[in-house]
Design a protein around this nucleic acid. Structure first.
Lengths: 335, 335
DNA sequence: TTGACTTTCCAAAACGTTTTGGAAATCTAG
DNA sequence: CTAGATTTCCAAAACGTTTTGGAAAGTCAA
């Protein structure tokens, strides 16, 4: 509604001075500054973001693309994280742009469209893959970005991630300590970094215990995927006594398969997931899980992105958060 | 990178003509238009969105605020819907801005900030309440918007909604037909329109069957809420034989409470939810639910918003989608 | 052949900021 | 009292579009 010109006129000052007063430059007298600020408040002045970003050559926005696989999207946790992140960014006057894309090809198109058109100053990469062309693209262009999850060469970019490798190692060793010898892994597709690392943790623990059979099955990270995986594993000639699942969603599917076979999770076979979904506490029996031991991953992500925008080096911005076990009733001593 | 001036120079044309050629005006010769378009493609030209929206006095963006209640956010379905919506909007060159807010007060602040600053041309309102100050604010300002869910005065604005009232009426009557007489409702907070309507549907069915006791309990729309509600209902002197739950999340919590009491869902007590979450098919027993009988609510929402931006009247843009029952194993004949 | 239309193009003025490069006015030191 | 330094302000030039209000050339009818 009101702009700098109007404000300046009503104050008998130049546009320049009003602009600089509001931006807190030193070359405007304290008295004038206060006068200007009061007037701005009174007239409910807000700088026009289009004009500002045209002149400043900045979009004042951060983009995140959502690869929208038909039917299903990530855990509710995920939206939560974005919300926390966006809230912190808003405090700095940055908007969070959601860019849904259809499939991977569409995702790169969106990147080009958004970055060629300078619609965003920085990017958040989610569902990071081991070999991620998005990371390559952004690095090449020199656009500040932070990934949620690592890549195969994590030292080259800023990221925040949970230590899924340690988490799965701990869980597998805990199962071994309870007497389990046939600990199977229900894996998510291995191009996704989180899935790869969780499997690595499981493998490391198997190696520690003298590497018995490596029972595993890879499926989509959904309840249906977990169900299918559990069915397959239980059909084997020497079925596992424990199922270490890449995600809680998969674990929930696995529980359903166990029930169908008349196996009592917790007593006859162990199940452990990851994410500690709200519903994990309400499965039957309540699902043993693990989770990132930090309350505000989204906020930390925002903080890192801001640091990156402020010129901090990517190598200084690499956070691996510890994973904490959340034991419930789906695992116990082996029979 | 490249702008109109550069393009014009390389073509030996004026900026005006290039601009008009790209926008498809009639006053540029077909031959020139093609020449311009080819050059634009070759130079990978993209109009600077800041400059464009400064001049056009439009933001070319749609905002959606996410009231982020600590800890928990809506069902995964929700992100899916936003993704589908954003995808359609992107086809029209509109960005989808996610504005997370802390609590209701913060939400109105965000509205003012975004709309005073002309950061968005239109708004999507989610988690709509019966008396919704956001709707009042937007109406007063004359900003185009579509709500996801109705308000108490739905004829005054554009909305898209499922017919939860019919869905819950149908479900309750189906339960009655199976011999159930004590059909309880696990309600979500009644200021949320969807919760109110679902309860109304249940009430109407009760009235049809001669209105026996009205057993109900209101709780937050989470697993924990459903758990708490089921516990309370089962403690009553004449406990229900069926639980009609406002959401699947609540139903999952309720299932957990039943299990704890040794009640077999489906055989000894019926449970029905709403949303048909991916995990609903994998509870034990698989959860009877219902869902909106349309594949692409998000896309339809986008379409309505576009129509509204195109000048269509709000009263012509009011969609109520049918709700389809998804019977599974948590309900059956009353004993 | 001429006047009126059409077609095709363009110069210049916005849009609302930020920033550059001074210019007055005031102060300070000698 | 004066030269220089400091403080406080401002005019004007960007930023990259869109749009207005023609102008020049070409076409058509009489």
């Amino acid at each position: 509604m009101s702009n700098l010109k109007l404000l300046a006129q009503s104050l008998g000052l130049s546009i320049t001075t009003v602009s600089r007063a509001l931006d807190g430059y030193a070359d405007v007298a304290p008295a004038t500054r206060e006068r200007v600020q009061a007037a701005a408040r009174a007239m409910n002045y807000r700088p026009n973001p289009a004009a500002r970003s045209l002149r400043r050559r900045k979009a004042e926005a951060v983009a995140v693309t959502l690869p929208t696989e038909p039917g299903r999207f990530g855990p509710p946790i995920f939206l939560n994280m974005l919300a926390a992140c966006g809230q912190r960014l808003a405090e700095e006057g940055l908007d969070l742009m959601l860019l849904p894309t259809a499939g991977r090809a569409g995702e790169m198109d969106t990147y080009r469209r958004v970055l060629d058109g300078r619609r965003a100053d920085a990017v958040i990469v989610v569902r990071t893959r081991l070999e991620d062309e998005r990371v390559a693209f952004l690095t090449e262009r020199g656009i500040p970005f932070v990934t949620h999850g690592r890549t195969a060469r994590p030292d080259e970019h800023a990221f925040i991630d949970g230590d899924g490798e340690a988490g799965f190692g701990d869980a597998a060793r805990a199962l071994a300590a309870l007497g389990h010898r046939r600990i199977a892994h229900i894996a998510a597709p291995q191009d996704l970094t989180f899935a790869h690392l969780r499997r690595q943790g499981w493998l490391a623990a198997l190696a520690d215990m003298g590497s018995p059979d490596r029972l595993e099955y890879t499926a989509p990270p959904t309840e249906a995927g977990g169900y299918e995986a559990a069915q397959w594993l239980l059909r084997q000639s020497a079925p596992p006594t424990a199922l270490l699942c890449a995600t809680d969603s998969m674990a929930i599917g696995a529980l359903s398969a166990l029930k169908e076979r008349g196996l009592a999770a917790g007593r006859e076979i162990a199940v452990i997931g990851h994410d500690n979904l709200p519903s994990a506490a309400f499965t039957d029996p309540p699902l043993s899980s693990m989770e990132i031991a930090a309350p505000d991953v989204g906020r930390q992500l925002a903080e890192m992105l801001l640091a990156r925008l402020g010129g901090r080096e990517a190598r200084e911005l690499q956070t691996i958060l510890p994973v904490r076990q959340v034991p419930r009733a789906t695992h116990g001593p082996a029979n």
